[in-house]
Design a protein around this nucleic acid. Sequence first.
DNA 1: TCCGATTCTCATATGCAGATGAGAAAAGGG
DNA 2: CCCTTTTCTCATCTGCATATGAGAATCGGA
Lengths: 147, 147
Amino acid sequence: MLSSTSDYALRAILVLAQATDGRPLRADQIARATGSPANYLAKTLNALAKAGLVTSARGPFGGFVLAVPAAELSLARITDCFDEPRPQTRCLLGNAPCDQRNACSAHKRWTAIKNARRAALADTTVADLLGGSAASLPTDVSLSSHQ
Amino acid sequence: MLSSTSDYALRAILVLAQATDGRPLRADQIARATGSPANYLAKTLNALAKAGLVTSARGPFGGFVLAVPAAELSLARITDCFDEPRPQTRCLLGNAPCDQRNACSAHKRWTAIKNARRAALADTTVADLLGGSAASLPTDVSLSSHQ
DNA sequence: TCCGATTCTCATATGCAGATGAGAAAAGGG
DNA sequence: CCCTTTTCTCATCTGCATATGAGAATCGGA
């Protein structure tokens, strides 16, 4: 579903979003709260800071603070920091680089699938996950719901 | 979007599905048609054969043939052979293993996202991609449609 | 039996996950 | 004003999984 790095990042963001008071949380606190390896999470938090999703402060009383309102922070914006998509090399059928103009027969359908998968992450915000109410996506898709 | 192994497998299946006559295709033919590394694709095709999606025949006039009708072969069935999901270790919020009974506040929403992402692959068949008509999924999701 | 193609096995490259340690910045105390 | 503590920042290192490559082994048909 998600790479482990994206998973750590999402959990860290959720912890930060739940810290109601404006006080920053240290990296090791976040690691303990999420069950992530502290050493690795430091790198991940650093990447999130560079991406502008969190702000970092050094020294005593330092730590990390969410830099984007939870209601405006989509899950896709988090995962995109780590699961960067390889550029589409060639089209699914044949060898020509398939674009809107020279579309192969699978192009439309495949693009729709990619968009649908992305939309599941792009249309949900951190606040949506924390709110825990009113899921706008279907909850009981009749699939063999293994992960 | 997909791991490169799943990508190779999907392209190989599409090539096999397009081979209308019943004659098998050799691994190197499929590799050339899809632009995949031949040596690696052999292993991938072998895995697909073990999963029962294709049948393999050795010797002269040997090769691979699609073992499942294209209309009954969902994309998820292909990708599941390679992108096997890590078992969900703990819930997104907190540490308890989150199940249907003890659901955290994010559980429903997160489950919906996972199902939606899977549905995009599970609800499309190889025949759907080749048919190239009547896409039932939305094609113009208003996203920054990069990959 | 012989050839060709698949299939198995080993070797290597690349990247990610995770660990470790040195260094830089910020705050507070002396 | 300097020093120490605290914390992030950055570079490097190792293990592991995946991706890739090349050759040997094996099987089936002619």
